[in-house]
Simulated assay, not measured.
Amino acid sequence: MEKRSFRIEGIHHVSLIVTDLERAKRFYENIIGLTEIQRPAFDFPGAWYAVGGSGQQLHLIVHEGETLRTRGIDTRDGHFAIRVNDYKETLEWLKHNQIEHKANPDSITGFAQIFLLDPDRNIIELNAEHQPDV
């Protein structure tokens, strides 16, 4: 196999289409707990968020229309994942806020998973190292 001429450093950002920016911002700030960061003055609305402390970002882009997703939470559908530090605490937070989710604490992946939908039906996975008494 031929060696590449470039090195991958990591994922910089994930972009998601949203239809209602203020609704999406409330969700990503108040439910997921992300912090909004500076965004260039594009000629279309959106918002950028820091994800963790390693430089990864989430970019929300307002786009008319809707996502192609019509069903509920499908764990095999396209999604992005955010690592959380406490699985049980995260589950309790989602339940407290009445956020529909699918929990998979004993995933064969080697880490515990929670899947949920944002207001525009984008799928998010929250995952954590396996923890006792989950």
Rank of each mutant, 00 (worst) to 15 (best):
R23V: 05
K25T: 01
T35V: 12
E22C: 00
A47K: 08
F42H: 14
A24R: 07
L21T: 02
I32V: 14
G33L: 02
E22W: 03
R23L: 02
E36T: 14
A47D: 03
G33E: 02
G46H: 04
T35E: 14
I37E: 14
N30W: 08
G33K: 03
F42C: 08
D20M: 00
A24K: 07
Y28V: 01
E29G: 07
D43F: 13
G33M: 03
L21W: 00
F27I: 03
A41E: 14
Y28I: 02
T35N: 12
G33C: 01
K25L: 01
Y49T: 05
L34R: 06
F44Y: 14
Q38Y: 12
D20L: 02
I32W: 03
F42W: 13
E29R: 13
E36H: 12
D43K: 12
W48R: 10
K25P: 01
L21M: 02
Y49P: 08
W48K: 11
G46C: 04
E29C: 11
K25Y: 00
K25R: 13
E22T: 09
P45Y: 00
P40C: 08
A47W: 05
D43N: 15
A47T: 06
L21G: 02
A47V: 06
P45V: 01
W48Q: 09
Y28N: 05
N30F: 07
